[in-house]
Amino acid sequence: MTPPRLSNPLSTPPIINFHVLTMRPLMLHGHERAITQIRYNYDGDLLFSVAKDHKPTVWYSDNGERLGTYNGHNGAVWCIDVNLDSTLVLTGAADDTAKLWDCEKGVAIQTWNTSSAIRSCGFSHLGNLLMFSTEDRKDVDCEIFVYDTRSNEGAVSRIKVEGERVSSGLWGPFDEFIITGHADGKVRHYDYRNNKCIKQQHMHRGTVTDLQLSQDKTMIITSSKDCNAMLYDVDELSLIKTFRTDRPVNSAAISPIKDHVVLGGGQEAMEVTTTTTKSGKFEAKFFHLIHAEEIGRVKGHFGPINSLKFHPNGKSYSSGGEDGYVRVHNFDPSYFEFEIEF
């Protein structure tokens, strides 16, 4: 006779279905292929998206109207960023080029030809510097390039990456260092002045798919193929929280106004044909930032979500999926009243 086990009353948190569903999202359908990354500008009035269809696109975020495209790439575009005052756009693509665009006019100002595909790119917070990273190939190493937008001279620095390639990257607070996520799950700090890695953390067991800073630049959230998302102290790279799911996570974002994070992902694109929409787990999942418990889900995409971003004012969020759609979700008023009650 085994004694009855006192089960942990905390093991199943109640899942509240958000009413986001009741409000119809804006479905931005301009891309012909899978969305790879989306990005808001500082003010949040513009939404930039890149996809595998070679054409970075900019939209009005409030009504979903397409403003224009940046034509010039000859391969899948993997990453995009826009500078602080929305004058420059940076894109990196699989045609082995990174391009700097005039945001307003839609023309390429500069093109960097590299020896392999660009996987991540970003403006420094100030916008003076930019970085992009290349993939490693057979006889090409993975590298991080840093350029100054104010001059046409060569690279400010060129960092050779040891170990697995950079899968995502962004600038740390005050542009002191570059934070990178790697294909083997490592997260690193790179000092671009001295071209070396200064800090490393290895918590994930799969590719770090996305890195995003919190609004106050004190924390970063990583998402990984190992089905987890993790919250780190941006300076110490110490783990604060882990958000566990049952699917590969392709992107994670922290709400600027609430203690919420949103995770998106789903089964790998190649496996999707064998499963139905429902079992593919393509919903965006909301977690409580502090309690790391799931609090809601938003359905909609027909394929995995590849990129998620909160609007800078926190009143809406957008997701770009393998299905080629960007969906802009405005939260219902009830979302803002919603507090976890126990």
């Binding site: 301009g30 109207e65 397409r66 403003l67 224009g68 495209t69 034509n71 307003e104 006019k105 839609g106 023309v107």
Partner: peptide, 8 residues
């Protein structure tokens, strides 16, 4: 835009 897209 210089290269003006038709607004759709």
């Amino acid at each position: 835009f210089l290269v003006k897209e038709k607004r759709e």
